[in-house]
Computed example of a mutant assay.
Amino acid sequence: MTPADSRHIPVLGRQAVEMLNPHAGGIYLDATFGAGGYSRAILDIAGTRVIGIDRDRSAIAGGFDLVDKSDGRLTLVEDRFSNLAEVCAGQGVNAVDGAVMDVGVSSMQLDQAERGFSFRLGGPLDMRMGHDGPTAADVIAKASEADLANIIYIFGEERHSRAVARAIVAARKEAPVTTTRALADIVSRVVRSKPGEIHPATRTFQGLRIFVNQELDELHLALAAAERVLKPGGRLVVVSFHSLEDRIVKNFLVERGKAGGGSRHLPELAHAAPSFVILTKRPIVADDAEISANPRARSAKLRAAERTDARAHEAASLPAWPTLDDVMRGG
Rank of each mutant, 00 (worst) to 15 (best):
A136T: 02
A137P: 00
A137G: 01
I140S: 12
I140C: 06
A141I: 05
A141R: 04
K142R: 14
K142W: 00
K142E: 09
A146S: 07
L148I: 12
N150V: 00
N150L: 14
I151L: 10
I151D: 11
Y153D: 09
Y153S: 15
I154W: 10
F155S: 03
G156V: 02
G156S: 11
E157W: 12
H160Q: 14
R162I: 02
R166V: 05
R166L: 10
I168T: 06
A171G: 08
K173M: 15
E174M: 15
P176F: 12
V177C: 11
T178W: 03
T179Q: 04
T180D: 09
T180H: 11
T180I: 04
L183W: 11
A184Q: 09
A184L: 13
D185E: 14
S188P: 04
S188M: 11
R189T: 05
R189M: 10
R192L: 07
S193R: 14
K194T: 03
I198F: 09
I198S: 07
A201R: 03
T202N: 13
R203P: 03
F205N: 01
Q206N: 06
Q206T: 01
G207R: 09
G207V: 08
L208V: 02
I210W: 09
I210L: 09
V212W: 01
N213F: 05
Q214E: 14
L216T: 05
H220F: 09
A222S: 12
L223Y: 07
L223W: 02
A225R: 03
A226C: 13
A226I: 07
V229I: 15
L230F: 00
G233Y: 04
G234V: 00
G234E: 03
V237D: 04
V237H: 00
V238T: 11
V238I: 07
F241W: 03
H242T: 10
S243T: 06
L244Y: 07
D246E: 10
R247I: 06
V249Y: 05
K250Y: 09
L253S: 08
L253A: 05
V254Q: 11
E255W: 06
R256M: 10
K258D: 05
G260M: 14
G261L: 02
G261F: 12
R264N: 05
R264E: 05
L266F: 14
L266S: 15
A270L: 14
A272F: 08
A273M: 08
A273Q: 13
P274R: 12
P274T: 13
S275W: 02
V277Q: 15
V277Y: 10
